[in-house]
């Protein structure tokens, strides 16, 4: 049984197992299902992720509010032009994450990972890196299991809810999960996976959740892109042998305490950050000007 990274690493010991192996064994026990059934379900979810990461590349996908969309296609077109500065893997990961995030905002089918708002980071990163490494299906699915393990620990010991911990809890958790997943895919040790996961959270410690008009669009779509960059750089640092210094468990605990310390205006209420800039407020007016916001709901406080 594990409740934190320290216990999970102790379970691995010198068995040569990966984080994924332990997470899958745990799932077999708590859900009373076979390893084969787990791998089948991971495959099913990966296929949905893969589709969401591609549907917005050749066609512009627009959100149901009509406010945003088409950035996945813009990035994909830019990649084809060959003018980008980042390496191709990061660029593609970003395009995939944008696509997935836009499919979500258009009421398309996605896999929350760990949330819907941050759903592009893990699949975008994983698909791009797996393409570069030409990873096997089995290795990709095991990387997903490792990501799930990181998400379990963050959920258990902190939170993955933006309303509770800010964006650091959602996009931070997603980048942390993605960093560990690709570190494993790159052949990193379980310790290195946790270093990458810890570094990814530290990189965006304190990030606030400030959605314009309360919608999962601005700044969420671009934060999904940014999460890919964060995950890939954290992986490279860990693979270079650079450590976090502050262990994963302590970083998660710190993230939780920082989240609690954030004022509620910066935790998914759309009452702070970019949501209350003049442009943010004007966009909100554009959406809710026609009665979407009733203006008489005292508990909301979002009316102006």
């Amino acid at each position: 049984m594990y409740h934190n990274a320290k216990e999970l690493l102790a379970l691995i010991g010198d068995s040569g197992k990966s984080i994924a192996d332990i997470v899958i064994e745990n799932e077999m026990e708590i859900s009373e299902i076979s390893r084969e059934a787990i791998m089948d379900e991971l495959q099913r979810r990966y296929d949905i992720m893969y589709k969401a990461c591609h549907d917005g590349l050749e066609t512009a996908v627009i959100s149901i509010s009509g406010l945003t969309g088409g950035t996945g296609k813009q990035m994909w077109d830019f990649i084809k032009s060959g003018k980008g500065i980042q390496d191709l893997t990061t660029q593609k990961g970003i395009a995939y994450a944008l696509s997935c995030s836009e499919v979500n905002a258009s009421m398309g089918l996605i896999v929350a990972a760990p949330t819907a708002g941050a759903c592009g980071i893990l699949p975008g990163t994983l698909i791009a890196v797996a393409e570069k490494l030409q990873s096997s299906k089995e290795d990709i699915l095991k990387a997903l299991a490792t990501a799930a393990g990181i998400g379990q620990l963050i959920t258990k010991n902190a939170t993955v809810s933006g309303a509770e911990g800010g964006c650091q809890a959602e996009c931070g958790a997603a980048a942390s999960m993605a960093a560990a997943a690709i570190t494993q895919l790159c052949g990193g040790t379980p310790e290195q996976c946790f270093e990458a996961a810890a570094i990814a959270i530290k990189n965006i410690m304190g990030l606030v959740c400030d959605p314009v008009a309360g919608l999962v669009e601005m700044p969420c779509t671009k934060r999904n892109a940014s999460g890919v960059g964060n995950a890939i750089l954290s992986c490279d640092l860990a693979m270079a042998g650079i450590t976090s210094h502050i262990p994963f468990d302590e970083v998660v605990d710190a993230m939780f305490r920082v989240g609690k310390a954030l004022p509620s205006t910066l935790r998914e209420t759309a009452l702070g950050g970019i949501a209350v800039t003049p442009t943010g407020m004007a966009l909100k007016e554009k959406i809710f000007g026609n009665g979407g916001c009733s203006g008489n709901c005292s508990s909301c406080g979002g009316c102006h």
Binding site: V23, I30, M107
Partner: peptide, 23 residues
């Protein structure tokens, strides 16, 4: 660990918000 990995990699859902749409 008593949290299922499929609660972390899930739900499989129509977007855009786990609390405002799936909930």
């Amino acid at each position: 660990m008593n949290i299922s990995m499929f609660d972390i990699l899930g739900p499989v859902m129509i977007g855009p918000s786990s609390s405002h749409t799936a909930g």
